[in-house]
Simulated scan of single mutants.
Amino acid sequence: MAAINLTASGPSTFILNGIPGLEAAHIWISIPFSMFYIVNLLGNFMVLFVVSKEQTLHMPMFLLLCMLALTDIGMSTCVVPKALCIFWFGFKGITVDGCLTQMFFLYVFTTTQSAVLVTMAFDRYIAICDPLRYATILTNAQIAKIGLVVLIRAVLLILPLPLLLRRLPFCTNRVILHTYCEYLAVVKISCGDTRVNRMYGLVITLLDIGLDLTLICLSYGLIISAVLRINSKKSLWKALNTCTAHICVMLISSTTFLFTALTHMFGQGIAAHVHILLANLFVLVPPMLNPIIYGVKTKELRDKVGKYLCRM
């Protein structure tokens, strides 16, 4: 049946299989998928709306939060609509160009998010370790330049992924065991030599998440060192409290991404549906939780959101 379906789909089409082994439960799985996606959109658009409307929030910290919100919306939007089409209507076909485009934008948003988290850690480092120079080091114009550099870096790192896949031959097996065009899932169905593709995928993981995590840990090592020298307990608690939201967001995003990447690379004994569920949780859970965490932990944002909600 698979061969017949593939023939019917044409030579320029891949088949996204959804979650193998759980096809009968696709409708039930779509319920949390759609709920997480709706909460994600509502939360992140609320952050963007409130920060854009409130002049008092036009500061580096909140501009970075808007960048994070945009990457959260982009990541989940690259994946969830197509996944829901698979779950609800059985629309499993995707053109090769559509697949590579989805992959490119998904990983650009993922890489951008990682770099934004690094910048947010640097922002907290300056705010705590060198507060008197904070306003001169991190201006709104400086944040805009950083955002542009972050985006260019992401594009340059990710652009080789679809280009390397373009050179691979794909024979009769065009069924991708996934809900979206995850890089290694597409590499696995090629009938050509994929060593370069796998190597570049590993390099991207190390350069992107590995380097960014190292920089974040370095920033927080310096922050902890500075905080421990504070004699006043009140000042100590205030300094730590300014970092808790970012630490929570960073841990959720980095942990889910690393676990997903490592299970795809080295977890051959793990069931396919576990791989795919983990990969989907990465693009669903952190984007949904990030605006909630910042909304709860950041007093200025919480107060402004509350003001607009009371007007409704």
Rank of each mutant, 00 (worst) to 15 (best):
V108T: 14
I94N: 04
A127L: 11
I137F: 09
I86F: 08
K82G: 07
A69K: 02
V96R: 10
V116C: 06
I143Q: 02
I137P: 08
I126P: 09
T77G: 08
V118N: 00
C85H: 13
A83Y: 10
I94A: 05
I86H: 08
D72M: 14
V96D: 06
S114N: 09
I73D: 08
F104D: 00
L100R: 13
I143S: 02
L117W: 01
S76M: 06
Y134W: 13
T139Y: 01
F104Y: 13
L138Y: 05
I143Y: 01
D72P: 08
C85G: 12
M75Y: 01
T111N: 09
Q113A: 10
A121L: 07
D72G: 15
Y125I: 04
D130R: 14
I137E: 06
A135T: 12
T119Y: 13
N140Y: 06
C78Y: 07
T77L: 12
T95S: 15
R133L: 10
G74A: 05
Q142Y: 09
T139R: 06
F91Y: 11
T112N: 07
F104W: 13
G90E: 09
F91V: 10
L68P: 09
P81L: 00
V116E: 01
I128W: 13
I137Q: 04
C78F: 08
T71M: 03
G74S: 06
R124S: 09
T77Q: 06
S76E: 04
V80K: 08
A135Y: 11
T111W: 08
V108I: 14
L132V: 15
Y125E: 02
Y125C: 01
V116K: 00
I143T: 12
A115S: 12
M120Q: 08
A115W: 12
C99F: 02
F104C: 04
V79S: 02
C99H: 00
A135L: 05
T136V: 10
C85Q: 15
L132M: 12
I128Q: 05
G93E: 09
V80M: 13
F109Y: 12
T95Q: 01
Q142I: 09
F105A: 03
S114L: 04
V79L: 03
T139M: 07
A83L: 05
T112A: 12
T139W: 02
D123H: 12
Q113S: 13
R133S: 15
C78P: 07
D130E: 12
K92P: 06
L132Q: 14
T139K: 07
C99A: 07
F122T: 11
Y134E: 12
A121S: 14
I73L: 13
L138T: 11
A144W: 10
S114T: 05
Y134V: 02
M75A: 05
N140E: 10
C99N: 00
K82C: 03
L70H: 02
A83S: 15
K82N: 11
I126S: 02
R124F: 04
T95V: 09
L100F: 15
T71C: 03
T95I: 11
K145M: 03
F105D: 04
M120E: 00
A144D: 08
T112H: 07
F87A: 00
M75L: 15
R133T: 13
A127H: 14
P81E: 01
S76F: 00
M103D: 07
P81T: 01
Y134H: 15
D130F: 10
L84G: 00
T112L: 11
L68R: 07
M75N: 04
S114R: 02
V79R: 03
V108H: 07
T71A: 01
Q142E: 05
A135R: 14
V79Q: 03
